[in-house]
Design a binder for these strands. Structure first.
Length: 405
RNA sequence: GUGAGUGUAGCUCAGUUGGUUAGAGCAUCGGGUUGUGGUUCCGAGGGUCGCGGGUUCGAAUCCCGUCAUUCACCCCA
């Protein structure tokens, strides 16, 4: 019979990878809580319109990467391709926008994008993210960046921070127009991908991997030189406060976010040791999204980090042997052994070996399975109502009465 | 969606210009005289050579198709 396997780009998480997941989530959660964030969990399935409106129809995510279908009630729904939209929907639905608007949420969970898998990119992947609502000060942007720094430092991951400003509704459109007309002039010299980008996302042309495009566009207008007064001064403050916080960064004027809702501060943490998908966390400010989705005008800033992308960079501290392994030298004694082992359960990590084995094999087994104490019942012990215990770590052994055990 | 690479034991891989019974290491299991682990020694099990077709006296090996997987592009965390 042909066996069934998991869908392309969707993996099982088990053993040491599952441990890493847990370790990463726990570390990130603790730090987010210290920054005043509380947990939010939103549905994996949402109305398709939510993502079309927030992520933006122009992006590939909405255009071709969504797991979209009609449910049995005929609703147009899809599996979430990212986390922010759902959180913003919930923020509005729970009327937080009308109750002052100051909320800080963290979340983690599965995201789905129908893409061709490659290193660091899966169809089912996991993100940890934070969204801070109601604070328009650029200092909050710094806080979000420092929060990520704390997480990566705690996980002992190396990274580089790239920042940019995308401007706001005042300065961005004019810049975009200028850029488009600049690109139109050079159209002939640019590659096919860039031709498409001029229509869909002109800023993306600026970091085209084609060398010819790079040289052609070296004198292109840069957004950071075309910011309005408020965006410009915020960007200056951002850089200054980051510097004073000891946070190294590099301004990347070509940095854009993949989702349409971002404005002002945009940032990305990248790693140079994980292949071509080098972004390990990304985020920025999205001041207009709440209003755009029908809520009361509320500024916001947030980020998401890709858990699978940092998996290979994280070393989980190796667990020491712990708990009790129970084994018997004769199946006659199994019932007694079972009762003694059961007593220990709930207090300790316990394995009761149900197969009779030689002492030699039991000790090997206990060690291999990561237990510290090997408790054995043989003929001597049963005769004296004792149990023999060896501490595999200290190599010491002891025979104690079953009652005292 | 586009391009390239790879599919042989649980894992990592050998396998000659096509040649007879497809191998190794690790892992697993058993044993080393009814009781002392991480070492070592001996032994055992385990393969539809991804799948389907073709060429050939003969295919793991050559050709075509297909599926899976990896990497890259696009895009993105």
């Amino acid at each position: 019979m042909k066996t069934i396997q998991s869908l392309r780009g969707m993996n099982d998480t088990l053993h040491n990878v599952a441990d890493k997941f847990e370790y990463i989530i726990n570390t990130a959660t603790e730090i987010a809580k210290n920054y005043g964030y509380t947990q939010i969990e939103t549905p994996l399935l949402e109305e398709t319109a939510l993502f079309k409106r927030s992520v933006g129809e122009s992006s590939d995510i909405v255009g071709k990467e969504m797991y979209q279908f009609l449910d049995k009630g005929g609703n147009d729904v899809c599996l979430r391709p990212e986390g922010t939209a759902g959180v913003v929907r919930s923020f509005i639905q729970n009327k937080f926008d009308k109750r002052g608007g100051n909320e800080k949420f963290f979340y983690h969970g599965a995201m789905f994008r129908y893409e061709r898998p490659q290193k660091g990119r899966l169809r089912l992947f996991h993100q940890f993210g934070c969204e801070s609502f109601g604070e328009n000060s650029v200092f909050e942007d710094v806080s979000v960046i420092l929060l990520i720094r704390d997480i990566f430092d705690a996980l002992e991951i190396g990274y580089k921070l790239k920042i940019n400003s995308l401007g706001c509704s005042e300065c961005m459109p004019t810049y975009r127009e200028n850029l488009v007309s600049y690109l139109e002039e050079k159209r002939e010299e640019l590659c096919e991908d860039c031709h498409r980008r001029i229509e869909t996302n002109p800023i993306r042309t600026l970091d085209c991997k084609n060398e010819k495009c790079q040289t052609e566009l070296s004198d292109s207008p840069k957004i950071v030189q075309n910011l309005c007064e408020s965006c410009d001064s915020d960007f200056e403050i951002l850089k200054r406060v980051l510097k004073e916080s000891g946070m190294d960064f590099e301004v990347d004027t070509n940095l854009v976010r993949g989702l349409d809702y971002y404005n002002k501060t945009a940032f990305e943490f990248v790693s140079d040791e994980i292949g071509s998908q080098s972004a390990i966390a990304g985020g920025g400010r999205y001041d207009k999204l709440v209003e755009f989705l029908g809520g009361k005008d509320t500024p916001a800033v947030g980020f998401a980090l890709g858990i699978e992308r940092i998996l290979d960079l994280v070393k989980v501290p190796e667990a020491e042997n712990s708990g009790y392994y129970f084994g018997t030298l004769d199946s006659e004694y199994l019932q007694k052994l079972y009762l003694l082992g059961t007593q220990k359960r709930g207090k300790e990590r316990v394995h009761i070996e149900l197969k009779k084995r030689s002492l030699n094999k039991h000790l090997q087994n206990a060690d291999k399975m990561g237990y510290r104490f090997c408790a054995i019942l043989g003929s001597d012990e049963v005769a004296n109502s004792t149990i023999w215990i060896k501490d595999l770590k200290l190599s010491s052994e002891d025979t104690i009465s079953q009652d005292a055990f």
